[in-house]
C-alpha cells in the first residue's frame, strides 16, 4: 500500500515537473519568436499609456530572467494575464472555450468508444473473415481521412445538399444563455452538435476498434481461455465475459490519453464547424499575436494532457494487479 502511495506521489511530482518544463519552454519559445510582444499591439490601436501599462505588467523592461520569474509567479497564482485581443482576463476566456471544446469532444469520444470497443471484440471473434477485413478497412479509412476533410464533406452533404443539419457554431444566433448548463441542454445545441461530434467520432472509432481487436487476439492464446473452452462455456460468453474484460486495459489507457488530448481539441474540426472551442481560440490567438492567450491556452492543454496521463498510470495500478510500482 505504501509502495503504491509512494509511486503515486512520485508520479504527481513528475507531472508538476513536466508542467514546469513546458511552461519554461513556452516562455523562451515565445520570447525567441516574438522578441517584443507589444509590437503587435501598436496596430491594435492601444494608447501609449496602455502599452506602457502592459509592458510593466509583463515586466518587459526588466532582464529576461526576472521576466521569467514574474511569468512563473503569475502562473502559480492562476493569473494568466490579460488578452490583447479581447481586452479581458485570459482565464475567463479559456475556461469558457475549454467548456465548449469538452461538450463537443466528450460525447464524440464516448460514442467512438461505445461503438468501437464491441466492434473490435466482434471483429476479433470473426478474425480472418471478410467481416474482419472490411471492419479493419473501414476503421483505417476513417483514420486516414483528414478530419477537416471529412468535416467539409459532411457539411457539404448533410448540411448543404440534404439541408438536414446546421453546419456551424454551437447554436442558432442570436442567442443568450443565462448559464453554461442552460446553454448546452437545449435541442438547438444538440442539433448543432450532431455533425461535428459524428465527424470526430468516426475519426476516433478506428483506434479503440483496432486496439481491442489486436489485444483480444493476444488474449485468445492465454491459458484461461483454453480453460474456459475446456469447461464447455459458449463461445459468446468466453468472448465477452472472459476475453474482453482482460483485453480492456489498453483500450482504457488509450481512452484516457485521448481525453487528455481532447482539451487541445481537434483544432481543424473546430475551425471547419466554427465551434468556439479552445483549439480554434489558440489558432486565432497566435494569428492576432495575442500571446498571453496563446501561451495560457497551450499551458492549460498541456496540464490537461499531463493530468490524464497521470490518471492512466493510476488506473493501471488499479486495474492490473501485475503492474509493479518501481
Amino acid at each position: 500500500m505504501s509502495a503504491r502511495r509512494n509511486y503515486i506521489i512520485r508520479r504527481v511530482m513528475h507531472g508538476f515537473l513536466a508542467l514546469f518544463i513546458i511552461a519554461t519552454l513556452l516562455f523562451f519559445l515565445f520570447r525567441l519568436g516574438l522578441p517584443d510582444p507589444t509590437a503587435a499591439l501598436i496596430t491594435e490601436g492601444l494608447t501609449p499609456a496602455e502599452r506602457e501599462q502592459i509592458r510593466a505588467r509583463f515586466g518587459l523592461e526588466r532582464p529576461l530572467w526576472e521576466q521569467y520569474l514574474i511569468y512563473l509567479g503569475n502562473i502559480v497564482q492562476g493569473d494568466f494575464g490579460f488578452s490583447f485581443h479581447y481586452r479581458a482576463p485570459v482565464a475567463d476566456i479559456i475556461w469558457e472555450r475549454l467548456g465548449n471544446t469538452m461538450v463537443l469532444m466528450l460525447p464524440a469520444i464516448a460514442l467512438a468508444y461505445a461503438v468501437g470497443v464491441p466492434l473490435g471484440a466482434w471483429l476479433s471473434w470473426r478474425r480472418g473473415s471478410g467481416t474482419d477485413t472490411t471492419g479493419i478497412f473501414v476503421g483505417l479509412m476513417f483514420r486516414s481521412a483528414p478530419m477537416f476533410w471529412t468535416g467539409m464533406i459532411a457539411i457539404l452533404f448533410f448540411g448543404i445538399y440534404l439541408g438536414w443539419l446546421p453546419t456551424s457554431g454551437m447554436r442558432t444566433l442570436p442567442y443568450e444563455a443565462s448559464g453554461f448548463l442552460d446553454k448546452i441542454f437545449t435541442l438547438d445545441f444538440l442539433h448543432h452538435l450532431i455533425l461535428p461530434a459524428l465527424v470526430v467520432a468516426l475519426y476516433y472509432l478506428g483506434s479503440p476498434m483496432l486496439i481491442m481487436r489486436n489485444t483480444m487476439l493476444e488474449v485468445y492464446g492465454e491459458d484461461f481461455i483454453e480453460m474456459a473452452r475446456a469447461k464447455g462455456l459458449p463461445e459468446r460468453r468466453i468472448l465477452y465475459n472472459h476475453a474482453a474484460r482482460n483485453a480492456l486495459l489498453p483500450v482504457v489507457t488509450q481512452l484516457a490519453v485521448t481525453i487528455g488530448l481532447a482539451a487541445g481539441g481537434q483544432v481543424v474540426v473546430e475551425v471547419v464547424f466554427s465551434w468556439p472551442g479552445l483549439g480554434r481560440e489558440i489558432l486565432n490567438a497566435v494569428r492576432t499575436s495575442d500571446f498571453p492567450l496563446a501561451q495560457a491556452s497551450f499551458l492549460v492543454m498541456a496540464a490537461f494532457v499531463i493530468t490524464l496521463n497521470l490518471l492512466v498510470d493510476m488506473l493501471y495500478t488499479l486495474l492490473d494487479p501485475r503492474v509493479s510500482f518501481k
Binding site: 507531472g15 513536466a18 508542467l19 513546458i22 519559445l29 488530448l261 482539451a263 487541445g264 481537434q266 483544432v267 481543424v268 483549439g279 489558440i282 489558432l283 497566435v286 496563446a294 491556452s297 497551450f298 492543454m301 498541456a302 494532457v305 499531463i306 496521463n309
Partner: peptide
C-alpha cells in the same frame, strides 16, 4: 504532455 496540433501551430 505537449498536445501535438497546438504545438505545431505555435
Amino acid at each position: 504532455g505537449i498536445p501535438f496540433e497546438p504545438f505545431a501551430l505555435i
